[in-house]
């Protein structure tokens, strides 16, 4: 359990948020031309990093907006939060 600084509402309890998984997985530009391997990679394969991970969160019980987070999954420490469409901060 931790506090999350929503870029629109400020600091709120994690209970108000929904985790949306790994961030920056690009939607295929030409879905019809994708091979089965590429579909598997896009749909299922995940980095699942122990350490610094980039992920999406949604303030589900608040402003309902999506944003990105950089979090250390080995200790749940939040390193950075940035809005959708913004460039991720360099490590």
């Amino acid at each position: 359990m931790f506090l999350i600084n929503c870029p629109y509402c400020g600091e709120r309890d994690q209970q108000e948020f929904k985790a949306g998984g790994e961030a920056h997985i690009e939607r295929p530009k030409q879905p019809t031309e994708l091979s089965d391997d590429e579909w598997a990679e896009y749909l299922f394969m995940r980095k699942n990093i122990k350490g610094i991970q980039f992920e999406r969160w949604n303030h589900a019980h608040g402003c309902r907006k999506w944003f990105n987070m950089v979090r250390d999954t080995s200790n749940d420490e939040i390193k950075a939060i940035y809005k959708m469409g913004e460039k991720p901060p360099s490590q």
Partner: peptide, 14 residues
């Protein structure tokens, strides 16, 4: 389970 990736062996109170 919690809905976020974590290796902390903790978990949320709710």
């Amino acid at each position: 389970t919690d809905d976020y990736v974590s290796y902390t062996q903790k978990g949320s109170h709710q």
